[in-house]
Design a protein around this nucleic acid. Structure first.
Lengths: 343, 343
DNA sequence: CTGAAAGCGCTAACAA
DNA sequence: TTGTTAGCGCTTTCAG
């Protein structure tokens, strides 16, 4: 691997000079600049970021920690962060916890060891303690979409998940549904946002005098598989629900799949609502009614916060983002309200 | 940030000693070992990988270059690579070209500048020239799923895409379809694998005396959107095809969506076949018939090759992987062959 | 406009 | 068992 010294020797100058022309700093005569550039090119010189970062004490790199890239919601976030950070001069390294707190901890340590300039952390596989520890060592961490009972979360950008649950309940109620069901991800080690979607949903039903029945509550782990399994269970009961809310789009897709396999038509026999509005949602059969999370805004805010912190500014956390209903074709009035089916 | 020197001073030893206990190398008395460990912990010491990598001349990190993480096919590959590499002691940094060759080139340079120990490169947004250039500078690069007319590809692991196209044609033919259509990604700057899926498909039809009609060929860019648009075009012609092959699963999903919106039932009115067998495929409505690419095997082979090369071994490229049909519920005999529809 | 020199944090001979 | 020392590749004062 050719170094700056090799280039310097070839160009008959010193390493410092090469460094200057390469960085565009300092004032260098046109002649030597060209000579250096030429030599660098000929020797196939490639800067060593390790060395550079070591001296400059910054990497212009941020870390992004998410639970699982296979979930299109996180893939979308990852893309947005990567592109956004890139235009602001930062590289992004994406890491998956796979919902494993041990791994999550390790990843955080690793990012710190790589001396990323800052981290954006999403819940799922990350303990608050681990984050605090990073923060304490001076590494900026921005928490996105984080919800944690009681404890105060480090600065970040949040979303009003509870409101999301309310919106869904209201939508379904307005369509005339009375036998509602839910598939919710409430794994003990998961983050609490699904609980909030759940409570927003149930409380609204309660208030409307139409409380959620216990047998219409099923659990999943946010995956397609779990959504399908939970929906199957819900839909094979003696009295079926007419509507189903899955607390994320992937489980909703699984639910639609379960319905399909049972010969039930969505939305005729069953209305389905998801949460997240992933890129796939408009292309499901039928297109999924869901709750949108404004990822662009989320990421922009998070990055503002993070890059601000990296530059030493202590910006204040923005207000909660507001989710909004996206009504597509997977919801309709219950069949009894509409007369006979039309194919 | 506390360094090894801080720890050394606190423990009353020298930096080298600290390095030794931290790495577990050398022989250190139990007493000092404990003392050092204790100090390191108390000071919140975190190793600096930049410095470490700089001296060790290796990062234990590999780069993965893919077109677009939002495509579940690539997300799946990314996960497999990351997990696999991790168990072998390597970290992975995932980068997206977004199908942009300029960006792709830059990413490659960046990975090299970060001194990753090796790279796994998938086609789409990467020029062969850029890869060759990395190779020339001594950085191991393994090309996966690469197809390039004439030119000889650097070592890597490939798949018999043509055969995949043949399998699809055969499957559809056997079901009794005669009016077949295809949505293919043949962007000029894309990789050639879709061309191969296409030619395998068309040639088989040709041989069967049932050549693909020109108006039944549509184009996409591998995205959901493009699949839906292309399918819409195909399905609104005076005489509809009875079967549709999309050269990847995402476009197939778009096609199912288009069919749904036109009130056509899959597979009753239209059979749909995809390619890739992404994690979503079994959960589409209906579950998608597709061509499986054995990602585990692919990644294992690629990693063997890469880690081998990193250790200096020059292993020979394994034979092409063989794709295989996965028949699910999106294909059936054409309606005319089956009598009237059953709901 | 360019060179000399110190330093970023860590590792690995080699001595002691 | 531990310390000394040189060096990894680059940046950046400070001189000249």
């Amino acid at each position: 691997m050719t170094t700056i010294y090799d280039v310097a020797k070839a160009a008959g100058v010193t390493a410092a000079t090469v460094s200057y022309v390469l960085s565009g700093r300092g004032s260098i005569s046109q002649a030597t600049r060209e000579k250096v550039l030429k030599c660098a090119h000929e020797l196939g010189y490639r800067p060593n970021l390790l060395a550079r970062s070591l001296t400059k004490q910054q990497t212009r790199t941020i870390g992004l920690v998410i639970p699982h890239i296979i979930n299109p919601f996180y893939a979308g976030i990852a893309e947005t962060v990567e592109r956004n950070a890139y235009t602001r001069g930062f590289r992004t390294v994406i890491t998956n916890t796979y919902e494993d707190e041990r791994l999550g901890q390790e990843l955080l340590e690793d990012l710190a060891a790589r001396r990323v300039d800052g981290i954006i952390a999403l819940p799922g596989g990350l303990s608050l303690a681990a984050i605090q520890s990073m923060l304490k060592s001076g590494l900026p961490v921005i928490c996105c979409l984080w919800e944690e009972e009681g404890q105060n979360i480090p600065s970040g950008v949040g979303l009003d998940f509870k409101r999301g649950g309310q919106l869904v309940a209201r939508h379904l109620l307005e369509l005339g549904h009375r036998r509602l069901s839910i598939i919710v991800d409430t794994r003990p080690d998961g983050s609490l946002d699904h609980h909030l979607r759940f409570s927003g949903f149930t409380e609204t039903l309660q208030d409307a005098g139409c409380p959620l029945e216990p047998q219409f509550i099923a659990h999943g782990d946010s995956s397609l598989e779990s959504g399908e399994a939970a929906a199957h269970q819900l839909l094979t009961q003696p009295e079926r629900p007419t509507a189903l809310f899955a607390t994320n789009d992937l489980m909703a897709m699984g639910a639609i799949s379960a319905a399909w396999k049972l010969g039930l038509r969505v939305p005729h026999d069953l209305s389905v609502v998801g949460f997240d509005n992933i890129a796939l949602s408009p292309f499901m059969a039928p297109p999924l009614t869901t709750v949108n999370v404004d990822r662009d805004r989320l990421v922009t805010l998070a990055l503002n916060l993070l890059l601000g912190r990296i530059e030493g500014k202590q910006l204040e956390t923005p207000p909660l983002l507001l989710p909004e209903m996206v009504i597509r074709s997977s919801t309709a009035a219950p069949a009894s309200e509409r007369g006979p089916a039309s194919p």
